[in-house]
Design a protein around this nucleic acid. Structure first.
Lengths: 350, 350
DNA sequence: TAAACTATACTCAAATTGAGCATAAAAGCG
DNA sequence: CGCTTTTATGCTCAATTTGAGTATAGTTTA
């Protein structure tokens, strides 16, 4: 086999929040330069043209840095005004791009997280905003623990635990499941561990990607595909909308990162308009955290951190008593910002 | 100018701790594949053959993942048994590799942090362990604030603040300096913000790399080099040993990451032998954190987190009362490990 | 006018954190 | 041997932070 080398590209996870709804920008077709996703041995018809994140090759002649490269083509292609931008992770696994199975190059992709205030996407019409929890439904605990955790995830993980070859493996799996999803009352669920949860589900054959990838690899290698358990497949299809390649893994990485960042950097403000009520701010934080917060404590924390200041104006558009409008204290908190917004963990009880 | 494309490589920051001394593995010459660092317009003779981190190109044919690639060549070349390995950041700035100035390709390098128990480096003889604080001396607060903070850093940053063009910039710089180094009593110094500190020093022309890079770029562009202020140069030479390329920035990234990780993952144990006294453990954490810890509180935290268990054996090699030997509770804490080792911030007073 | 909803001020107990005191057990040294 | 030095280990205490309420006020909507 010849050495097809590597292709280096940039993947953008662009987040916004409208009112209560968290959104991420996805494209239906892959970008021109890497068009037509190779036929994956698709397990599920839905997977045939699944969503991807905006992707562009990195051109060192045009771009001084990876970040400026990303900013430039995202702004060119979507017209969005990216605010906070942060490098996430570089993904370089074998067969990330299924074309590698047929002799294509390794696709090394530097993932970036970008925050913006939501606005209609200009430019190429194939990009659209989607609720990010439609891809990772088990991460949204705002209305309590979603039903599919008990009905789909728990049984699937139970099966996986029971399939352990020996006692030690079995106990390790039990512990891991318990920690990731907080089933054990002793270890409350940590909102930041999104990637671990996704990877656990992937390993446990609980998401559709596991089956898809296995099948694709087996086909490319000329091995007779193993017939997946129909019950496992059906269960996997219930676990959120699929995405192409490892894009759901990337989304999980992004979500974990932004949740972690929340605690020590005032990043929320890059998702909000210049002026906002404290309750709007809280709604956005809740959308990110995937859980409800205690209102009084939330504002206490904001005040203690000197993160916001009142504008004097009021917002009467809401239903109840009008709330005062605040603005982010740029400058001071910008740098200081040892304080962010702390997220409590989610107790197993709730 | 033709398009020379990119080269994708892997950079390894390998850390170990011997007794009290933190160590990082550096090589004197660059690895074969990217040998002979181009002549940087070296400001300082010492910079002519500076240390670099082990670097190797990424070969997608041999390596299924970036991490396995890194593990493989590091273990081949050094014989070290890498334990914890984590991706740090991908560096792709213009002119990272000075050969780019002369038409070379962009060097995109995926940085990895690796922990190992120190052992003599086998294999190619040009690798050696160095105290990592020799490169970032302002990060070691174990014996109180190092003198060079007051004698070198503070004056240099003062000059930078005074050079601000306008009042707003000036205040921003003041705030930033104060937050990074904790000069202001209100904002204690955060051990995790190592990268911010390095970048601040770089921007403020306080480290030698700023001068080196500026000169190199000016020469390559055929611009007459600006003569650097001799006092600034002299001061910059006092700020730790230099490294090639952006390797000190990478080290700062690594140090910040491991310090942050300490708080929520039991990574220290990958630097220790199987059995250790609590005091040895504390010494290692202190080496990482760059500050001294309260002994009693430290063990209280360990016990609360169930991270270690006594072996029953005693260590009598020390001078005082023999200490009990402990081992890391693998398995349980491995996964649970919401608890790590929390680092207090460093108050300005001390 | 009541019900519903939102804003905002306070309180309180539990848990966490930073710092110290006290005592125990060894080694080294006169 | 007795004294100093050094390290280990158990325990207390106050300050702060955190999670969860109670109480009351100001608006809109049925």
């Amino acid at each position: 086999m010849n050495n097809p080398g590597t292709v280096t590209g940039l993947t953008a996870v662009i987040l916004a929040v409208t009112e209560e709804t968290p959104r991420v920008l996805v494209v239906r077709r892959m970008s021109h330069d890497l068009a037509t996703p190779a036929q994956l041995g698709s397990v599920d018809p839905d997977v045939d043209s699944p969503d991807t994140f905006p992707f562009g090759p990195f051109d060192p002649v045009r771009h001084r840095t990876l970040e400026s490269g990303l900013r430039q083509w995202v702004e060119e292609q979507t017209g969005l005004d990216l605010r906070y931008v942060e490098q996430l992770y570089t993904f370089g696994n074998e067969f990330r791009d299924p074309r590698e199975l047929h002799g294509g190059p390794r696709l090394v992709s530097v993932g970036y997280l970008a925050l913006t205030r939501e606005s209609p996407v200009a430019g190429t019409g194939d990009a659209e905003w989607r609720d990010w929890y439609s891809f990772l439904p088990w991460e949204d605990m705002r209305e309590g623990s979603p039903k599919l955790i008990e009905t789909v995830i728990r049984p699937a993980l139970r099966t996986w635990i029971d399939q352990a070859a020996d006692r030690a493996t079995r106990e390790q799996r039990e512990e891991r499941v318990s920690v990731c999803f907080g089933f054990d009352a002793a270890a409350p669920r940590d909102p930041v561990r999104t990637l671990e949860r996704y990877e656990l589900l992937y390993e446990a054959d609980a998401v559709i990607e596991t089956h898809r990838d296995r099948l694709a690899i087996q086909r490319a290698r000329g091995v007779t595909p193993t017939e997946p358990d129909p019950r496992a497949l059906e269960s996997a299809r219930l676990l959120g909308a699929p995405m192409a390649l490892d894009n759901r893994r990337i989304l999980a990485t992004a979500l974990g990162r932004i949740r972690g960042k929340l605690a020590y950097r005032p990043v929320v403000f890059d998702l909000l308009p210049t002026e906002f009520t404290l309750f709007q701010l809280q709604r956005v934080v809740e959308a990110l955290a995937g859980k409800r917060l205690h209102k009084q404590n939330f504002r206490r924390m904001l005040m203690a951190g000197d993160l916001v200041e009142p504008t004097g104006r009021m917002d009467s558009s809401g239903r109840g008593r009008p709330a005062e409008l605040y603005r982010f204290r740029r400058g001071v908190a910008q740098e200081r910002a040892i304080v962010g917004v702390t997220l409590p963990s989610i107790s197993a009880a709730e």
